[in-house]
Design a protein around this nucleic acid. Sequence first.
RNA 1: GCGGGUGUAGCUCAAUGGUAGAGCGUCAGCCUUCCAAGCUGAAUGUUGACGGUUCGAGUCCGUUCACCCGCUCCA
Length: 506
Amino acid sequence: MSSNTIRMEELVSLCKRRGFIYPASEIYGGLNGFWDYGPLGTELKNNLRDAWWHDMVRCPPAGPDGEPVSIVGLDSSIIQNPRVWEASGHVGGFNDPMVDCRETKSRYRADHLFCLGVKGETGGQIYAYLENDDESLASARKKLEKYVKRTLADEELDTCALTSLPAEALAATVGPDTKAVGTLTEPRQFNLMFKTFVGAVQDDESAAYLRPETAQGIFLNFANVVDTMRVKVPFGIAQVGKAFRNEVTPRNFIFRSREFEQMEIEWFCHGDEAEQWFEFWCDVRKSWWESLGLTSDNVMMRKHDADELAHYAKEGCGTFDVEYRFPFTAPGYGELEGVAHRGDYDLRRHEEFSKKKLTYFDQPKNERYLPHVIEPSAGLSRGTLAMLCEAYTPDPERASKVYMAFNPRLAPIKAAIFPLVNKDGMPEMASKLHQDLRRRWPVQYDAKQSIGKRYARMDEAGCPWCFTVDSDSLTDQSVTIRDRDSLSQDRVAIDQVENWLAERLG
RNA sequence: GCGGGUGUAGCUCAAUGGUAGAGCGUCAGCCUUCCAAGCUGAAUGUUGACGGUUCGAGUCCGUUCACCCGCUCCA
């Protein structure tokens, strides 16, 4: 077991202990791939979401030409007309039948397997091989010739798709990487979209899907936004929301869960300008993650190889991932956000399927066209996990042995207010300060147990500052500020505490 | 979906087939004048779930669920 997995277990343990993240429906034994956010996790996730909305929708950075950019918000339905997912390509691409080999434990896409047999002969063994793989084909032919005990001419060979085989022929089939017969399972559907039914009657007519991405809701409303919001291309539409995928293997805490949250922008621009906007968004998004505390060593941009490009990204200039070095991927990286050049794929497909015109008329250019799309698609759940991983700071010197070094902007608790001792007028004074501050920020009051324990509790919760009222406070009207990261203690006038915090929190 | 591992209090872990425990945390009281201090007390468990073997199962067996690791998958 590597030290990284130990650290991950410690993080999961802290998340539960301090109310960040719990297993979903835990009292019933949990459910694979689902997690609940506790009180502190909810605050953290909301803070990350709000920071994104503020920095991308309300105050986005200036564009490449120095002019302000325009982004508007949206909140579309999780369930849409099922034809949406036909148009988007998810119904086709999400349902690949797979075949497993019981012997070698390999898994193959059924439509990538072909079978080799002797022409005209039925009932004999047949040999599966991988499509477009000469080595695999040669191996299958060799095994077949050994089976029939003679060399076969090319014209004696018969091939067919594995998916076209009847069940009894499949039972006589030898897998690509084995010599035993009948080790392949029947092709099984992997439905990555959650299916549900709209209305009380559950028949095929009423079948629908939970969205596997929030993006499509934006494309569906492109024309509505253009018609009603006086926006001009280039502009963006942003949306935050839940998405659902029946992942084959949910893993790594909330990194790959079946219900998760996305923060997506669809940036609509002229095709000629798409490339410069693509570069712009790659830069903006990487810097944004770094501005929240992810150190640049742990963040990298990675261009997708041609063979891993999504169906929608093949026509544009590709996809860059913003990747983070999670403890469970280290020394490698895991995807935090994908910035994809989708071309005009989505609007074009929805035009085809809906028969509605989705072109944009550009007045200054006097030109009608389908805008191209740059999509910075970030994982809110993954971002929250990255923030938890980055903040987790072991420190054997301090009582808690670990503290969460959240950026104050994201910290679930912004400040704690303590009476040093729970008597002599200190609790009254501290409580008054707490009442005043909680109108503006999530702050906590704690008078129980020793001051050291209270500091330690706040360290694990990632609270950046503690204000302590002591006996001097009663005479000089000042309090001690204890800094989470430096452990330094400074004095500030009690009537200046709110300003002091406002300067640091905005 | 496959293989391996794990599952006992909120957390970390003990318990030869024979009475389910400890530390920490939490809570209450006393105390305490700046970093999990001290004292006293309390709550918390169908030992993940179901079934079997046994006089007796946390322990052995089977099934199942969840988590971790490795495959596979990740539009």
